[in-house]
Structure formats: C-alpha cells, structure tokens
Design a protein around this nucleic acid. Structure first.
Lengths: 117, 117
DNA sequence: CATAGTGATATGTATTGTCAAGCATTTGGG
DNA sequence: CCCAAATGCTTGACAATACATATCACTATG
C-alpha cells in the first residue's frame, strides 16, 4: 500500500469534453438513422419506424425520448385518440445535417461496396 | 409474372446504400472514440485503450479488427515478444476527420453542458 | 362489419458489451 | 536476484441492451 503521490496516475482529463459526449450520444444504435430520416421532414411514429428500417418500437421510443430530452427532436401530439403524433428536428437537430453530410461524403468515397457479402 | 418465390417480401430498397452502411459502422460502441484517438497519431493497444478511456480490451480488440478489415485502421506488429504493436489510421481513416470535426463543431454549439450529473 | 392503420408498451429471447483474470516476456527498482 | 509493472491481447462468466412479437384502444376505409 504505497502512500506515494502516484504522479503517474493517468488523471485522464475529466473536465467535460463536449465532443466526447456528443460521440456518446450519436453512437447509440439507431440515433443517426433517426436523425437522417427526420432530415427530410417530420414524421409520425410508425412512419419514422418504416423510414429508419428495422428498429423495433421499444428501442425507437427510447431513442426518440432521449433525443427529445437533449433538445434534438421535438414531439408534437396532435391527438391521442386516434393516436397521431409527429416528430421533427429542432434547430439543434437540423444542425446535425452537417454531420450526416460528412458521413455521406465519406461513405461514397471510401466505403467499399459489399461485393458478394 | 411472379416467379412464385416469396412474393410477400417487402423488397425494401435493397439497393446498397453507402450512408446507411456507414452509419451502421460508426454507430458501434467505441468506434468513433477510437478513430478520434488515432487522429492524433498511431498508438499501441494499451495506449489506445487509455486514450479512448473506458473501453475494455475485448471490445477494443474486436472493434479494431473490424476497422482493420474495413480498411480504416492499419495494424503493424513490430515484435511479438515483447509484444509491440501499433495502430494507425489509413487514408480512409484520416478522411473520417471531417466527420469528427462536424461532430466537434455541432457539440460546441448545441450540446448543453451536462449541468449537474 | 371486418381489416388495416395509428402510437405506443409488455413479454421473453438473442445479441452485444463488460469485468476480471491470465499468458509469455522484457524492463526497472530495491 | 527477484518482485512488480508493463506489453498485446484472449478467455469465460456475467450484465446490459436490442430484438421479435403480441397487444392495447380506437378510427377510418372498404
């Protein structure tokens, strides 16, 4: 049990890093797909689900809730019965278009075709 | 003239979409962090692990292997014993800097401080 | 009046990521 | 000399996450 000052402790800059946080948000499964889908206009729940393609409702609901909480997506309930809701991007959400576009450009240039699987 | 082969298949635009694929790659946990870490120079395994911060070796090894397979990262073994390896970004990997920068810009402008917690 | 569609939520299961320990060896300190 | 630390990973048991599917109350359409 060394009482020494441990000068070699990594002490990995725990000061809040926005980029690190942002990556943690965008890296969650389906998040980027959701944003991409909403970039071409507001959508209802099932509509969004179809646009995203393959995400199950539980996960979608969870993602959308988090994105709303983060101020990236806004949810508007037009009527509860029959259910009619619409999800849209906020200003912050729209701003993510730049990120999607960067991914778009990169993928077209560097992502190899899947060829024969 | 239906060939009678599974006509009920949704047939959801299976034409390869590079952006969709790219998102699927980047959305895997730690991937973006790894790339970001490697942007400021090649690193060894443990070094990378520390730079990424919080990723366990099993996952890191798996991610790095996939990224290598995709031609985003290159692995060079300098000596097996003592072990000494280095991971670096390929050209395709470097190109992802544009994506990271887009995230960087977005996060600084729109990501709220974590407040309390 | 049956069917399909709306926005979700609840099950149980499958996939995914995590933790802790360990391997063979060199290096550094005591 | 010998113990501890560091290197680049791998393994196996476990937990967290996402999945498919069924279901709800209700309306609009055919």
């Amino acid at each position: 049990m060394v009482r020494s000052i441990a000068p070699e402790t990594p002490e990995v800059d725990h000061s809040f890093c926005p980029v690190y946080e942002a990556i943690n948000v965008l890296q969650e499964k389906w998040t980027l797909h959701i944003i991409r889908s909403l970039l071409d206009g507001p959508k209802g729940f099932n509509e969004l689900s179809r646009a995203v393609g393959g995400c199950n409702p539980a996960t979608l609901a969870q993602r959308v809730e988090k994105l709303e909480h983060l101020g990236i997506v806004s949810k508007t309930i037009h009527s509860t019965m029959p259910p009619r809701t619409s999800y849209a991007l906020t200003e912050a959400g729209q701003a993510l278009q730049a990120v999607i576009e960067a991914i778009d450009r990169w993928s077209r240039q560097y992502l190899p075709a899947p060829s024969t699987k």
